[in-house]
């Protein structure tokens, strides 16, 4: 991940900052410029609740280049209390214990390394609660 893009995404990856449409209340994560529901372009920024439930998941057994040596690991779709659904890795879990519907919370973890000399990239991952 190149530095400008990584830096641009920090409010979402680090702090779960979302946009709430002042017209219809639609929550967008990451924030948008125009509401897909009512077309307005006026949003309040707010921080999403970091708790939710696991809607579905899969186990990655053959990782892409940056995840070689980290397999097997779980990636799931989590629905947060604010209704936002996001895709995230599920950390600190025995994979055979995972079940759809489990309560999770998002924590701050390292997502990937840009090789041996590049950036460490941080963001959210889910853990079971």
């Amino acid at each position: 991940m190149i530095s400008p893009r990584y830096h641009r995404e920090i409010p979402q990856r680090y702090r779960l900052e979302a946009g709430k449409c002042k017209g219809c209340g639609y929550v967008s994560f990451p924030p948008r410029l125009v509401c897909p529901e009512c077309g307005k372009n006026d949003f309040d920024l707010f921080k999403l609740d970091n708790e939710g439930k696991l809607l579905t998941y899969t186990i990655i057994r053959v990782g892409s280049d940056k995840f070689v040596g980290k397999t097997p690991f779980a990636v799931g779709i989590v629905e947060l209390k604010d209704g936002v659904k996001l895709t995230t890795q599920i950390a600190d879990v025995n994979l055979d214990e995972l079940k759809i519907g489990q309560q999770v919370k998002l924590v701050f973890r390292k997502i990937q390394d840009e090789g041996k000399s590049g950036l460490h990239c941080y963001g959210y991952k889910a853990i079971l609660i």
Binding site: Q89, D92, K110
Partner: peptide, 9 residues
């Protein structure tokens, strides 16, 4: 530490 944990996390 987990594979994704370090002093910062």
């Amino acid at each position: 530490p987990g594979l994704d944990e370090d002093t910062i996390t």
